[in-house]
Nucleic acid binder design. Sequence first.
DNA 1: CGGTTGTTTGAACTGATTCAATCTGTGTGG
DNA 2: CCACACAGATTGAATCAGTTCAAACAACCG
Lengths: 239, 239
Amino acid sequence: MATSATVPIDAKVGAGLAETLTAAGLKPALAKRFEQMPQRQVTVLPRRPFREPGVARDEVMFVRSGLLSKYKSDGNGRRQIVALRFVGDGILPRQGSADYGVQAIVRSEVLIGKREDFAAVVDSDAEYSRFFMQLMERHSAISYEWLVNCGRRDSTARVTHLLCETVERSHVDVAKQSLINPFTQQQIADITGHTSVNVNRVFADLERQGLIHRKGREIFFDDWAELQRVASFRADYLR
Amino acid sequence: MATSATVPIDAKVGAGLAETLTAAGLKPALAKRFEQMPQRQVTVLPRRPFREPGVARDEVMFVRSGLLSKYKSDGNGRRQIVALRFVGDGILPRQGSADYGVQAIVRSEVLIGKREDFAAVVDSDAEYSRFFMQLMERHSAISYEWLVNCGRRDSTARVTHLLCETVERSHVDVAKQSLINPFTQQQIADITGHTSVNVNRVFADLERQGLIHRKGREIFFDDWAELQRVASFRADYLR
DNA sequence: CGGTTGTTTGAACTGATTCAATCTGTGTGG
DNA sequence: CCACACAGATTGAATCAGTTCAAACAACCG
């Protein structure tokens, strides 16, 4: 897979489920076996209804390419994106209905399996549950960091932090590559708990300060170290 | 255990680990077996250092009585409480170090076991991992709701929502009982992403509106239905 | 080309923070 | 029982960050 200087997130097709899981730390043999689980691949279009909140979520999903979001809305219909799933990330099935919905941020290829089939594979070797519990731990660490972000940082830091996280989680090398921003400013607002107007102003500020510059959807990181400082971003929580 | 009209959270001693896990949905036989895991009980004092962020977290903990918090702080030392553990809740061990710390909100009795012992028990029956994954799911659902709270609700709703969640998770029957508020206003601020000054004003507002009244630490809910509405609180996410 | 979606900008407004002072309750030691 | 210390709660005034509303602009797509 050639890696050009500008790889949009949605073009980064995962190398395949087994490879992805191996990269995440699952033993190759088990990853191979896991891939045998019955599954189908679905193309999910951005901002189109995909899975609504409040309905049974008896499927496993793995993001093969693209970017998914989990979202909720509060009583007054204000929308909050509560989690992201990048290439290689998954959404595990749960007992009963989920109170969050799922939508694509960009066009995504998603592998979907049935809960029973997933459960059967997981039960077949204790190593699997160890592995998936570890993945759940990682996502919960990310949730915690998002809480700190929403609760304790100002708007500049919040937006910048999301940018840093996006760079890391989509494996962009800022020294050589730019980031094709997958989000609309409204979506960034839905993640950071702001309004799109304010997100826009933060971007303008960052540009004015010479930390980034933009060309369309493309974001160039002109001072990565300073940007991380502004965001109080430390990548530890992602590993 | 006599249940008087005013039971402080820290007096609600859990009925024992096995009973708690059974109540949470684990088969009685497995709960019984789980209790055999080597463990010790520790008393944790409020606001005293207990587990610092950034160190190995190779223990399981279960809250026997009291109330624990997980916290992080952002780069500038501003503290954010990212999760609560009520009686019967647990904190699972993780690979490597945790980026959150643990502190008690009120004096708590905590059962602590070693990661290896926990792993051994969990590996002994696939039912255990199903069960603990379900618990992790529940906590992640709570994290999501907290994100909505921090990101999308105004200060009144945020504080009120926390009150509602506390009532539910500590099994207070608002029709008959009051809640002994376990938090200082600073801690409520650390959970909701505010300042203690503002939390204080919210409480004053709620009282002025006749939704609650207070006597010392004690909170009486004078209009529970309206309070839930103000908080856009729906208890679904807790189950 | 026209419609749609997203971005950008300005001006007025408001909710929350900050700073600082005061008040209250609790526990301690004399 | 009082004096004192300390932590938390309460209040006011000034300030500021972020929202809201509204309008203009740009990019994209069939």
